[in-house]
Design a protein around this nucleic acid. Sequence first.
DNA 1: TGTTATGCATAATAAACTTATGTATGTTTG
DNA 2: CAAACATACATAAGTTTATTATGCATAACA
Lengths: 118, 118
Amino acid sequence: MYVCSIMRPTNLYKGSLNTIILKLLSTHDKMYGYEITQKVKAITKGELHITEGALYPSLHKLEAEGLLEVEFVKVNNRTRKYYRLTEQGTKETMRKLEALENYIKTMRALVSPKFRLE
Amino acid sequence: MYVCSIMRPTNLYKGSLNTIILKLLSTHDKMYGYEITQKVKAITKGELHITEGALYPSLHKLEAEGLLEVEFVKVNNRTRKYYRLTEQGTKETMRKLEALENYIKTMRALVSPKFRLE
DNA sequence: TGTTATGCATAATAAACTTATGTATGTTTG
DNA sequence: CAAACATACATAAGTTTATTATGCATAACA
């Protein structure tokens, strides 16, 4: 997957890419694909490497679902495809972040018995 | 996936099933498949529902990889297939738990900027 | 005696990735 | 100044990991 850990690859935790994309766009107004890969690399100190083969299809899907909208901008003779959240995308972002928090709580309950669900 | 949340399904966070299985076996000596599904349901207050279609193939794979070993026990005229960690399985469990902690830290850094990686 | 619970298993399908490849331009460096 | 690296998009083939559906079999319960 798109985790490039120092540890040998784990194949763990698929499914969080959309959450990452949406969250980044909720705090950055608009971003283009390559920018997202670099941002994630920077924030995670190289821990996560978003592959293009995962990223671009995901962006296309999120756009097709109406969560993102597109704007083309020509910079230095190269075209950037900027994405920004739609209103629906903003709502979905909140849902996905709640789901992530919930997942983390659940996993904590499973792996560290001192964290118990109420 | 095997998450049965109150929220509408998210398709998020595949890949943690093996971690859950191994962790449970690291604190329970030996368990059989059905027992694992019930244990997870109890600990997570019904939040996670491990489907049999996911569980049994995973157990078989972990066994084939040498992480689990099998013992058949007849109880009330029904046969239970008990699994326990091998030595290699114990090591792998530690690795997977570290990877999970690491993943959670990384995701926190991405979604809650106040958590920053060093 | 039919429904629910216990207990295992596999096949078909789908989702979400990895890996590999392709196209094209700009920048840096030996 | 040519090769390597960075920027920027995209898709196709294959893998992993799940869901959904189905099957078999026994026990308990109402």
